[in-house]
Nucleic acid binder design. Structure first.
Lengths: 202, 202, 202, 202
DNA sequence: TATGAATGAGGATTCATTCAT
DNA sequence: AATGAATGAATCCTCATTCAT
């Protein structure tokens, strides 16, 4: 987020418009399924002007992914070693669920990237992400050793939280079709609370 | 949609080769990201010959989706009202996890379709799928009423099983990057068993 | 010239038409100055059809260069160690001059490539070409040692023959503008004969 | 076309920078192969600013050609009717060879223009250039008539001098590849001296 | 069944040039 | 004198699909 390049107002506005349009399109149609025409029209720019701001289609996609990765792990980083273990984990899950509600396109963009084999962020996965997860696994094992939560495989617990929460954004169409209604947040939140609490209680 | 057309052996073989190649490609690159050339080469056919078997690119994709939907819900259908409730649910989850292990490409194909808004199978979702889920929800509510499992929202329980299990196929790259190893099945299976059992125990 | 790929009649015809059109265009406008549209129109093909025969613009250019290199050095190879030295060299120059008359586009294509730094055939220059020239230099030095021709730097003698003859193709416009007439061959031939003979006579 | 416009120091500096950058680029990549971006960057100017100094890409190219033509024929003009004929001609050739060594980009720019059919300077060729060559031809014929040099076709003699000398600049890459070394001047100079002297000696 | 040939409709990107300031 | 912003017209190339045989 901390762009070093100084930007004029008009640049900031147009870049933001392009990223917004790109997020819309890429999260719905994937990289190949999205055309620059789509993005340009949605951003209210001509195609060459769009390419004046971003060198290429890939540059837009990459910028979106980078912005995403920058914040995607914030909820996990926010888990506090010193807090109450069960509440920390439950809170983490809730924050992830809120992200599914508030940033579903970002979630789907990420999901699409991973589904296709993470061509752009493979390094990130085995680098930053793995390091962070490993660090949190250490914390969780500490909580287990201290008898504060029931024994559990930390990595798979984290996978569970990711999948349970992101599902509501990524499979949104299915969720709404099956439920027959659009708002799932309250029920999902309550459900995940009980699901995790039952498992973690020491 | 079981094709009624009688097929010669060579026809059956070529159609199968095309579907196999299509599954490979579509599950990895998405619909737009896949080209007929790729499929034709992988299937060992010329492009026009490929189109002799399937009218269009979309026809291949649709055939794959239909074949998938045909079996995708089998594990859920297999849940036995008369069986032991907790074991039935746990077994369902295990079968889904096995499908993630054994048919990851099918899982990713389905995920891609849903992520993009389910353009081809929207009807299925709010039709067959919803009906089946609602039917199982009735069964689950019966189990709850009978005190055989703890109270739980049946729909969200089912979402949980879907997401927890499909995650291992759909986010396979991430799972392996974070774990630092390729085989996740045993640990995931044990983890899901305890997770669901803790929640369902009456 | 010995294409391994078996070609149907129509393929051979179209590939030939493309190469002819490409030679016309590239030799006049250079690589960048030539468009696929030009070549396609001159060859009587649609642009995609043109690309069915040659993968890319560069492939056409490369094919032309390769075909050219294949025959470009034939006159030099034809110099006979056992022949009369002065006549061999004079004959070589005459053949080169005939090539300038008969294949001016090929000469200009080659000149353009060299002028731009030989991006496609740098290897050829320091490989095959240099080897051949060095071999002929040995022959020429032999002739000098035997007192059959006057002492001369073989490499620069060869450069002289190249430049003197190719000039008539490459600077054709200038030659005709200065002469005020179109046919230069007879006079140039006589001139080069006397020029070289005067220098080589032992 | 000597620009009458008075120029500030900064104007003169920027115009010079643009011409220098343009010469670099055009002589290497040709007209179409050169982009304004390249020139602008090499000149240290923004593209619009560059176009403030020169109305268009073509204007830069034309300015370069004009500047070139202005001096290109100086060595020929310098041939002195009253000097020693053989020495005058030999000296002319040497001066041209020095230009190939000292101004190879200019030589290549000129060669490119001629190769492409002299679209910008066709008039010059059949006008100024032809007139000058014809004038020198008269001089040479005078020398021949006076028995000061051997009989020779003056036009083709001049073509020979042009081609023999410019070759070292225009085919520089090939020359260096074949020689296996970078400096060719001394040997070429000696070679051309003997070549021309042998032919001209009365 | 099978393939060589052909194409219309894009689609990403480049680039000389213009506009506004 | 200078630049950020914008664009129309290419330009190379892709691709699903059709045609002819």
């Amino acid at each position: 987020m901390s762009d070093a390049k100084p930007q004029t107002r008009i640049q900031a506005k147009n870049r933001a418009a392009i990223l917004a349009a790109g997020l819309d399109a890429f999260s719905q149609f994937g990289f190949r399924g999205t055309t620059l025409d789509q993005i340009a029209e949605a951003a209210g720019l001509s195609k060459p002007n769009l390419l004046y701001y971003f060198r290429s289609k890939d540059a837009i996609y990459t910028a979106l992914l980078e912005r995403l990765l920058d914040t995607w792990l914030d909820p996990m980083r926010a888990m506090d070693d010193a807090g109450d273990p069960v509440e920390e984990i439950i809170t983490y899950a809730r924050r992830k669920l809120e992200m599914s509600r508030d940033f579903p396109r970002e979630s789907r963009l990420f999901a699409t990237e991973i589904l296709q084999g993470a061509p752009h962020i493979a390094d990130h996965l085995s680098g930053d992400l793995r390091a962070l997860v490993d660090a949190k696994a250490v914390v969780i094992r500490g909580w287990i050793a201290a008898g504060k939560i029931a024994p559990v495989d930390p990595h798979h617990l984290i996978f569970s939280i990711w999948s349970l929460t992101q599902h509501y954004a990524d499979f949104d169409v299915q969720v709404r079709a099956v439920l027959g209604k659009d708002d799932w947040f309250e029920d999902a939140d309550a459900h995940l609370d009980t699901l995790l609490r039952a498992r973690l209680r020491p």
